[in-house]
Design a protein around this nucleic acid. Sequence first.
DNA 1: AAAATATGATACGTACACTTACCATATTGA
DNA 2: TCAATATGGTAAGTGTACGTATCATATTTT
Lengths: 143, 143
Amino acid sequence: MTSRDDLGQMPGHLIRRLNQRSTAVFSERMKSAPVELTSVQYAALDVLAREPGIDQARLASLIAYDRATIGEVVKRLEKKGLVARQVNEEDRRARTLRLTADGETALAQVAPLVAALQAEILGKLTEAEQAQFLELARKAVEP
Amino acid sequence: MTSRDDLGQMPGHLIRRLNQRSTAVFSERMKSAPVELTSVQYAALDVLAREPGIDQARLASLIAYDRATIGEVVKRLEKKGLVARQVNEEDRRARTLRLTADGETALAQVAPLVAALQAEILGKLTEAEQAQFLELARKAVEP
DNA sequence: AAAATATGATACGTACACTTACCATATTGA
DNA sequence: TCAATATGGTAAGTGTACGTATCATATTTT
């Protein structure tokens, strides 16, 4: 019989391992941060800083997440006191999201760390290769 | 103040979205399969077909997963009747893993589907770009 | 051989990630 | 305007994914 394709060569497998490396680097570097955030939590804070007052559905769509997942993430951020949630009086179904003062501080402290760790994720590649990879990745996730 | 890097350009974010796309394609295509497997479950079956009799720790290391996670995955595969687990008499700490007949069948049925869906994950890229991407991804996850 | 150490597996806890179903509120359209 | 539909949020269920602790069994060291 013909042998199946090697798992290790499959896009799906490679991408999963890449993501694994990415989250490992993120949480490792985050250990030395004043506030410990997961990468999703960071993404949420980042978007809320740019677009204060949006609701959860919009937040979810901006960072390409599921509504239910974002609900959980926001709940944890609220519990940590980094995000404030209040009912939108114009549309009582929606909850308006904002960073708290602590949230602003946390984001400001963590942002440089996150920016710095990005290169490390692709640390096995040369600068040119990293640029090339990002180019291809951007194209691959296009809607 | 200087503006933070755009989230959408960050390796970590891009990789996460890629992985999201990958798992979405996988589960979408799997809906029409005779046996519905997750990508991790498939990876486990694939490795067990090549190396019957290995234990969970070795399986975890071969597909680059955490021991605890694989324990759960194997438990579900056992429940589905696709994998058999038995205490290794040479080392009573270890559990020896094997595909059942159903497991062999499931793998044979699903393997072509999985192979076919791989290209779709990178469907936004040309053939040449896909090859280039895989090359870079392989290098990026090197140990 | 007893003590120290290492390793396989599991349990528990935390955090995603998504699906489906459901409730509340808005919007649309007959 | 009132029924049909759409949308925001939550709840429940499934399945990763990993850290830490613990237990059982092996291996190594003294």
